[in-house]
Write a protein that binds this DNA or RNA. Structure first.
Lengths: 193, 193
DNA sequence: GGCAGTTTGGAACGATTGGTCAAACCGAGG
DNA sequence: CCTCGGTTTGACCAATCGTTCCAAACTGCC
C-alpha cells in the first residue's frame, strides 16, 4: 500500500550502525549515510528528524540487535560462570578477526560524545549499567551454583569485569595485540577463581 | 626582531592540546583552534601546515609535557612498586576531579583515529608501548627490590596493568563512578600482591 | 481512472568547513 | 632612510556540512 514505507527500517538502521560504527558520529556525513542506507536525503530526514536523531536510533538498534541479543543468548545457553567467560572470549575473538577494527559502538560513543552531550551520557551510562548488572547477576548465580567461590565480593568483581571489558574493547580497536588480549582473558579467569 | 616569531610555540601547542583534548580531532574546527591558540589562521597554517599537522604536533606535545613528564617524576621520586600505585592513584584522582572529563588525549585519539589512520595508529601504539614498558620496568625493579613477589609473570602483569589503565581512563571520561574506579585501584594492588 | 498519501531524487539553502594568499608590517643591516 | 626577509593579518576560496523543500513518480483504494 502506498502509505506503507517501502524500506525496512531495521535494515536501514543496520546500515546506519555500520557507518557510524566505523568512523564515529562526527566523521560520518549525511552523504555517507545516504549512500550507506540506500535511502535518499528526504526520506532519511522524514524518518529520523536529523543526523543526531538517526544516530540515537542507530545506537538503540545496535544495543537491541547486538548487545542485548548477545547477552540473552549467553543467559539461555550457558551456565552462569561460563556465560561470563564466553562473553569475554567471543568478544576477544570477534574483535581480533574484524579487519575494520570497529570495536564496540557503545564504547566508541562513550568516549567520543558522552563527556559533553548529557543525553548521550545518560544513554551510555544506562547501557553500560546493564552490562554491569548482567555480570553481577551471573556472578551471583555462579556463587549459588557453587562455580564461583562464595566469599568473592560480587559487586566489586562486576565493576572490575566491566572495566576489563571496556579495556578489551578499546585495546582491540586501537592496539590489537593478541598477548594483551590473552592477559585480559587470563585475568577474567583469575577473578572467577 | 621581525624574523622571530612573536608567540611561544610551546604555549600555542598547550592551548591546541586543550582544544583537541575536550572534543577530539573531528569536532574541533580551525576556528576553534584560532580562538584557542590566539594565533590567526595564516600563522597557524604557516607554522603547522594543516589541521592534521597541528594535531600531530599537539599529540607529541601532550606526550612530552604530560605523559613523559609524569612518568619521569614517578621514576625519580618513588620506589618501583609505589610508582605503579601512584600512577593509578593520581590518574584516578585527577580524572574524577576534572569537571571537563577530558580523560587521556592519547586514549581518546586511539579510539577516534587509530583504526583508520595508519600513521596515528603507529604513534598511538608507540606511546602505549612506552607505558607498557614503564610498567614492566617498574615491576621487574620491584621484584629485584623484593616488594613484588618474584614468581609473578611481569610481562603478563604489565599488559594487564596497561589494560586496566586504559579502562580507567575510558571509565573516568564516560562513566565516572567512584566505586568502579575503586575496584580498579583495588585490583592493581591485588596484582602487585 | 481519478484520488490521496508516500516515497523519491535532486536542487537549493545558509553556514561552516579546511585551506590560501597578497598586502601590511617590522626591525636589523647597508 | 631604505631595502630585505621574515611574520602577521584578515579577506577570501571552493568544497562540504547539515538541512529544507518541492515537483514528479508511484501505488493501492474508491
Amino acid at each position: 500500500m502506498p502509505w506503507e514505507k517501502k524500506y525496512d527500517e531495521s535494515d536501514v538502521l543496520d546500515r546506519a550502525v555500520g557507518a557510524f560504527w566505523e568512523h564515529g558520529f562526527e566523521a560520518t556525513s549525511i552523504s555517507t549515510l545516504v549512500k550507506a542506507t540506500g535511502l535518499n536525503r528526504g526520506s532519511l530526514y522524514a524518518a529520523f528528524g536529523d543526523k543526531r536523531g538517526l544516530f540515537l536510533r542507530a545506537l538503540d538498534h545496535y544495543d537491541l540487535t547486538r548487545k542485548q541479543h548477545f547477552l540473552n543468548a549467553l543467559l539461555a545457553d550457558q551456565a552462569p560462570r561460563e556465560a561470563i567467560r564466553a562473553l569475554f572470549r567471543s568478544v576477544a575473538e570477534g574483535s581480533l578477526e574484524d579487519k575494520d577494527r570497529r570495536g564496540c559502538l557503545l564504547v566508541n560513543t562513550a568516549l567520543e560524545l558522552a563527556p559533553y552531550d548529557p543525553e548521550i551520557e545518560r544513554i551510555v551510562a544506562d547501557r553500560l549499567g546493564e552490562v554491569e548488572a548482567f555480570l553481577l547477576d551471573r556472578l551471583q548465580a555462579a556463587q549459588t551454583a557453587g562455580t564461583v567461590r562464595p566469599d568473592l565480593d560480587a559487586e566489586n568483581a562486576a565493576r572490575l569485569l566491566l572495566s576489563l571489558f571496556i579495556g578489551l574493547r578499546v585495546i582491540t580497536r586501537s592496539y590489537p595485540r593478541a598477548k594483551v588480549v590473552d592477559a585480559i582473558l587470563d585475568q577474567v579467569d583469575a577473578i572467577l577463581g
